Deep mutational scan, measured.
Amino acid sequence: MEVRTIKVFTTVDNINLHTQVVDMSMTYGQQFGPTYLDGADVTKIKPHNSHEGKTFYVLPNDDTLRVEAFEYYHTTDPSFLGRYMSALNHTKKWKYPQVNGLTSIKWADNNCYLATALLTLQQIELKFNPPALQDAYYRARAGEAANFCALILAYCNKTVGELGDVRETMSYLFQHANLDSCKRVLNVVCKTCGQQQTTLKGVEAVMYMGTLSYEQFKKGVQIPCTCGKQATKYLVQQESPFVMMSAPPAQYELKHGTFTCASEYTGNYQCGHYKHITSKETLYCIDGALLTKSSEYKGPITDVFYKENSYTTTIK
């Protein structure tokens, strides 16, 4: 009895394709271990004539594949690729409408935090270190965002349907971005203890939790000093293409032309909904596939993004 075979390709990165001759009487799992086709788990399936010449994702289970996976995804987590594939199996079914010149995501599976993050990423200057993220990001900007969303979920250790947080998501993504040249110098002034300067680099240099107003941050924000008295913390120097200011959701007025974009969060910790506000020729609110415009805006804002380049204080 002759062994019926077909020729397929296996890959971990969709760049390096490895030619395989597979036995049609055995499952993919018996031949390769966990195997995925377009995100779908085909591990328990036997090869079919229609699979001839198709590319299958496999887990990096030998040295060659491990090197290829690390170079593309910059992670050695053995569960990463499987999590990416199972997320992709959902995100490829989502709709990605162009809204006001940006790629958004039609609401499904509690994905409003991903839509808000995706919209924000198209408006701030950011370059990702893992080629996987950078490639998928370019495709997302062009309207094909399924891979990018699935990668975000995998890097953030999230599953489809789980509630997510924009600030946490951005923080994970910033860790995989090139923020080497970003720098922030802060000064804390206390009447009792004097003053202390701190220099922050990388992710810490672009994120701040405690106030939404970048102007206020430049002037000074009140913080408790270690001595128990009130101290003032203010920005001395900022070198970065953008800054992200966050605070627990509270009524906040966004003035046209003073910011790049913002995240609105309605609801409580267990259950809520994100919308995205962007400042173009007027203010726009993007909620999944829905767009509304207004000249002014007041609502429960939790993150505001500002364009920056270089700032030095005039406070002496």
Rank of each mutant, 00 (worst) to 15 (best):
Q196W: 08
T169V: 14
S246G: 07
Y274D: 05
N110D: 11
H48C: 15
I105K: 02
E308R: 08
H273W: 07
Q230N: 06
K201A: 15
T282M: 09
V21N: 10
D180A: 12
L151Y: 02
D165W: 08
I223C: 08
K280S: 13
T192N: 06
P60Y: 03
L114R: 01
G202P: 03
Y306H: 04
D23S: 13
T258S: 11
L200W: 02
T19L: 13
T312I: 15
F80L: 01
T116D: 09
K280Q: 14
A142V: 01
G299V: 04
Q20R: 14
A250S: 15
E71T: 15
K255Y: 14
Y36W: 11
Q30T: 02
K95L: 10
K158L: 14
K219R: 10
V243P: 06
A231Y: 03
V58S: 01
C261Y: 05
S50Q: 14
K158I: 01
D135S: 08
V189D: 07
L179V: 06
N309Q: 14
V22R: 01
Y72A: 13
K92P: 00
Y172Q: 09
I105L: 06
T43M: 08
K54Y: 14
A145N: 01
M85Y: 11
S310R: 13
T35R: 01
Q20E: 10
L59I: 11
I6T: 08
Q222Y: 04
K316G: 13
P47C: 02
Y96N: 01
C182L: 06
P300H: 15
L126D: 04
G33K: 02
Q197E: 04
D41I: 08
T116L: 03
A177S: 08
F56M: 12
K127R: 09
V58K: 11
C156H: 01
V221T: 10
K106Y: 06
W94C: 02
Q251N: 15
R4Q: 12
F128S: 00
Q251H: 10
I223P: 07
L153Y: 15
E296A: 13
Q270R: 08
A154C: 06
V166D: 02
I223H: 14
S213V: 05
G220S: 05
T10H: 07
H74C: 08
L291N: 11
N129V: 07
C261H: 05
N16I: 14
L59N: 05
D62F: 03
A262W: 02
T35N: 00
T120C: 13
K293W: 09
G210F: 01
S171I: 13
L65W: 07
L114D: 09
G228I: 05
F259I: 05
P78K: 15
N14Q: 08
N111S: 01
L291Q: 12
S263M: 08
K93T: 11
N49H: 15
T19F: 07
K7P: 13
L102P: 08
T292R: 12
T266Q: 13
L212R: 12
K229R: 10
V189E: 14
R139D: 14
T282L: 10
C271H: 15
Q175R: 05
L291E: 11
G53V: 01
T260M: 14
M26F: 14
Y28N: 03
P97H: 12
S295H: 14
K54C: 10
K127Q: 14
V304A: 06
L118I: 14
D62Y: 00
D180C: 08
V67F: 15
N309Y: 12
T302M: 04
N49D: 14
I45F: 10
N111A: 02
T120K: 04
G29L: 04
T75W: 00
A150Y: 02
M207P: 10
N157D: 07
I223W: 12
V42D: 00
Q237G: 08
T27I: 11
T11N: 01
A150H: 01
G210I: 05
S181F: 10
I223L: 10
E2C: 14
V166R: 00
L121E: 06
Q175P: 04
T198A: 11
I105Y: 02
I315S: 13
V236K: 11
A140C: 09
N157I: 02
E144K: 10
